Simulated assay, not measured.
Amino acid sequence: MPAKSKAQQMAAGAALAAKRGEKKVGELKGASKSMYKSMDEKELDKMASTKRKGKPKHASS
């Protein structure tokens, strides 16, 4: 599942770093914290590696 916005991609990247032990889980907030809990490393990697070109800063509701 590719990221729909830059913000979503960045949150996935933070959650992925925590999954890999590069960042403390306690430092996560909001979307990155829920992604950490609900997604596995493979899903987070796929979302975080989405190309940014043409993505909005935030996904519209």
Rank of each mutant, 00 (worst) to 15 (best):
M1A: 13
M1G: 13
P2Y: 00
P2L: 02
P2H: 08
A3E: 01
A3R: 01
A3N: 01
A3V: 00
A3D: 01
A3H: 00
K4Q: 11
S5R: 03
S5L: 04
S5P: 08
K6I: 14
A7D: 04
A7G: 00
A7L: 09
A7T: 05
Q8N: 05
Q9V: 07
M10D: 15
M10P: 00
M10R: 15
A11E: 06
A12L: 02
A12F: 04
A12C: 08
G13W: 01
A14G: 03
A14Q: 15
A14W: 10
A15H: 03
A15W: 03
A15Y: 01
L16F: 05
L16D: 05
L16Y: 02
A17I: 08
A17E: 12
A18S: 09
A18C: 06
K19E: 07
K19I: 05
K19C: 04
R20W: 06
G21Y: 07
E22D: 15
E22G: 09
K24Q: 13
K24D: 15
K24M: 13
V25A: 11
V25G: 01
V25F: 10
L28A: 06
K29L: 11
K29M: 12
A31V: 14
A31W: 12
S32P: 01
K33I: 05
K33F: 07
K33W: 10
S34A: 10
S34Q: 14
S34M: 14
S34V: 12
S34H: 13
M35G: 02
Y36A: 03
Y36V: 03
Y36G: 04
K37I: 12
S38W: 08
M39Q: 08
M39R: 09
D40C: 04
D40K: 10
D40F: 06
E41K: 12
E41R: 05
K42V: 14
E43A: 14
E43V: 05
E43P: 02
E43K: 13
L44A: 04
L44N: 06
L44P: 07
D45T: 15
D45W: 14
K46D: 11
M47N: 04
M47L: 10
A48E: 03
A48G: 02
A48D: 00
A48C: 03
S49Q: 09
S49V: 00
S49I: 00
S49L: 06
T50Q: 03
K51P: 15
K51M: 12
R52E: 15
K53N: 10
K53E: 13
G54W: 05
G54T: 02
K55F: 13
K55D: 08
K55R: 14
P56M: 04
P56K: 02
P56A: 00
P56D: 05
H58K: 14
H58S: 12
A59D: 13
A59N: 08
A59K: 13
S60R: 15
S60E: 14
